[in-house]
Computed example of a mutant assay.
Amino acid sequence: MLTFEKFSTSVALAFPPPELSVLLESLWWDKKGDWQKAHDLIDHLQDAKSAHVHAYLHRKEKDLWNARYWYNRAKKPAYIGSLDDEWEELVKTYL
């Protein structure tokens, strides 16, 4: 089973671990600095969990209107803390 620590250190690799869900792969690419790849992985998905990650990505992009839209789709309140804290919480939630 993948732990948060192992997930976090895997970001040093060239490619994500093969067992990642699309949500975690999106967060992995985001941490690698490839926002576009992270967004492309979930942009077409319509489920609430994907909407939750999608909201975070738009918040990171500073597109707050779009982020609020996706938080609503996810049925989650807009995150108030830091982007790093939200990223960590999302990873831990979806591991």
Rank of each mutant, 00 (worst) to 15 (best):
R59Y: 05
S8L: 14
P17S: 07
E88C: 11
P16D: 09
L90M: 02
D84W: 01
L24M: 13
T93W: 11
D84Q: 11
E61T: 04
E88Q: 15
L45V: 11
K76D: 02
K76V: 04
K75I: 01
E25N: 05
A38W: 03
D40Y: 02
L27P: 01
H39I: 08
K60A: 13
D47N: 13
E86F: 03
S50F: 00
S8C: 04
A74P: 00
V11Y: 06
F15V: 14
A55L: 09
K31Y: 11
D30K: 12
F15D: 11
Y69P: 04
A48F: 07
H39M: 15
T3D: 08
R73E: 14
D84M: 04
A48D: 07
K6G: 03
F7R: 05
D47I: 07
Q36W: 08
D85K: 10
Y79T: 08
L41H: 06
D84F: 09
Y71H: 10
Q46R: 10
Q36S: 13
N66I: 12
A78S: 14
L20A: 04
L95N: 03
L2A: 07
S21E: 00
E19Y: 10
A78L: 08
Y79S: 15
E88V: 09
L41I: 11
D63N: 10
H52Y: 06
E89Q: 15
T3M: 01
D47F: 09
Y79D: 06
